[in-house]
Computed example of a mutant assay.
Amino acid sequence: MATWDLSSTMHHILICNGSSCNRVGAEELTQAIRKEISDRDLDNTIHTTRTRCNGRCHDKCVVIHYPKGTWYKDLNSEDVSPFIESILINEEYSEKLSHTFHGEGFQRSQGVITGILKDKERVSKVSKKQG
């Protein structure tokens, strides 16, 4: 396993590779993002991490950009170049924006489903086990 020197890293991209995202091309998206970063010689500036499920399966493929805390939905390989460009010019890739962080929580973009609250999900699972 490699241990990366992150001292020059300015951006961290988390790419969901959970089962729902994988069914619609998450692995191809992951490789396309990494290739774009490498082709632009940004390997020391942008770090990527392949994750498991990020809990927004309806929004597949999900990509998260930090330090901004911006979540994107429905990304595919065709989105990679403009997505990386948006990061470099410090703007959001608005075509696929899901949620933006504003200090006290996330703001959902227009047209993005709310989803269920974690507490309700936990209560539902417990109720089903007990029922």
Rank of each mutant, 00 (worst) to 15 (best):
S94C: 01
G18D: 07
L42F: 10
G55M: 07
D59Q: 14
E27A: 09
K73P: 00
A26S: 15
S77K: 14
G55P: 02
R34C: 14
I89L: 05
S109V: 03
S109G: 07
I37H: 02
V24Q: 09
D74K: 14
Y66P: 01
S19G: 06
I13R: 05
R40G: 00
S94V: 11
T30P: 00
V24A: 11
G18V: 05
T51H: 08
W71P: 03
K60V: 11
R52C: 10
S98F: 05
V24R: 09
R52K: 12
P82A: 14
E104H: 13
C16Q: 05
H47N: 13
V80T: 08
F83A: 01
G18W: 02
W71M: 09
E28F: 01
H99P: 01
D41V: 07
W71G: 07
R56W: 03
E91H: 08
R50I: 05
L75F: 06
E27Y: 04
H58N: 09
R108W: 04
L88E: 06
S94G: 01
R52F: 03
T51K: 03
S98K: 06
I46G: 12
R34F: 00
T70P: 02
V63H: 12
Y93H: 04
F106V: 01
K96H: 08
R40M: 06
A32G: 13
L75C: 10
E91D: 11
D74T: 14
R34L: 05
K68H: 11
R40T: 03
R108V: 10
N22A: 13
D41Y: 05
R50E: 13
W71F: 10
S77T: 14
D79S: 12
S19H: 10
R23E: 11
S86G: 04
D43G: 13
T70K: 03
S86K: 03
H58T: 12
P82E: 12
E28T: 06
P82M: 11
T30C: 06
K68P: 02
N90Q: 13
I37L: 12
K96T: 01
D43I: 06
T48H: 02
E92Y: 11
N22I: 03
